[in-house]
Design a protein around this nucleic acid. Sequence first.
DNA 1: CGGAATCTTGACCATCGGGTCAGGCTCTGG
DNA 2: CCAGAGCCTGACCCGATGGTCAAGATTCCG
Lengths: 221, 221
Amino acid sequence: MHGAEAGRPTRRRGAPAGSIRQDSMARILAAAEPVFARAGFEGAAMAEIAAAAGLPKANLHYYFGTKERLYRALLEEVLATWLAEAADWIVPHRHPAEALGGYVRAKMALSRTRPQASRIFAGELLRGAPHILEFLGGELRRQVTAMSAVIEGWVAAGLMDPIAPPHLFFTIWAMTQTYADFAVQVAAVLGKPALDEDDFAAATETVAALVLKGAGVRAHP
Amino acid sequence: MHGAEAGRPTRRRGAPAGSIRQDSMARILAAAEPVFARAGFEGAAMAEIAAAAGLPKANLHYYFGTKERLYRALLEEVLATWLAEAADWIVPHRHPAEALGGYVRAKMALSRTRPQASRIFAGELLRGAPHILEFLGGELRRQVTAMSAVIEGWVAAGLMDPIAPPHLFFTIWAMTQTYADFAVQVAAVLGKPALDEDDFAAATETVAALVLKGAGVRAHP
DNA sequence: CGGAATCTTGACCATCGGGTCAGGCTCTGG
DNA sequence: CCAGAGCCTGACCCGATGGTCAAGATTCCG
């Protein structure tokens, strides 16, 4: 998930170099992710994170200062992953069928493998995004603007139907992330204890079809 | 929104009958909705709700007992609205273009007019739906099953392409509710302080097109 | 090898927030 | 007009939680 996490029961004596810091911070971040995802910022308890990390609570404060800074550090990591994924797929030289299809599949895979990251992000947005408003209106906005131009290019080239590009992204995010954020609902409605591979496969196909057919993307030659 | 809410500065002396109870409870629920929506269950403070309702905190406990019961009461109200909406639109005698289009538009309208209700629901799901698991696997599951049969009927009648009906609903909910739950993100990315009518119109068109074209719904004769 | 820098941690503190309660007030029905 | 049911609320309680601190252990480096 991050760098180090499981294993390493106790801190070894002859530690490498001054890497104790990095190591501890990574360990704490890894422990914090599931807790924040499950309980949200308000509901998460530093003591619980500490226990999960196998460290005394005071240690977390030694490295991160406050609960809020720990939370922010986690958020930033998640956002970086988000952006990179989109930038990889939505590029002009690809055919939209490949680009949008690939992006949807990649995003669905993320929903499956890292649902906690998605939930932390969702919780942050739900609360009005107090910690990442700047990011949303800055970096994210710029990237969406750039990707919108790519979409417009495909439309102009007759490779897909006209569409409002930003809304296309909002809906793609919504559909893909719902399988992470609201997995409980999906599972409950399907009458299963949890979502399995087949469920994700069906979901992925449905979402991909809705996007590709819905946007009138021509067949990939 | 509910029954009574704004207005009525002080409780009148010659109150009608034993309706004081209903009146106070409605007042409290109305005050609780925005607070729970903004802060989530954990983050919401009874004192804040009390202040918003213009009542002493002890009064809330007099009527609802605990924070949890107050929260549940609110949730149940929201869920009822949700179900009714779907049941109105997804019925066999309609043409899928009308049914799905109408449903999408109705849900988008709800996202616009009652975003707080949507956010409370979203927060509940994010936390693993501790209070409504039963509802999801019971009432909701039954209704989705019934509506899935309707979809299958349309497919069999050649009115739309084959699709996994439950996933169609999951994606519709995801797309429509994202404009309530994650409105901050949408607004920030669009570079606006808040979403206006035009934004919702564009979003509605995009979502409707994705669903109708994406599901291969034939034109309404 | 010795001291400075870094790390570790148990004990402690202040605040917050849900919940309680006893006494007082208001309204209704007879 | 009276009594009791229903309603109201200020003051209080207490567990949970984020954060602090100072003393002690480790590690690093000259």
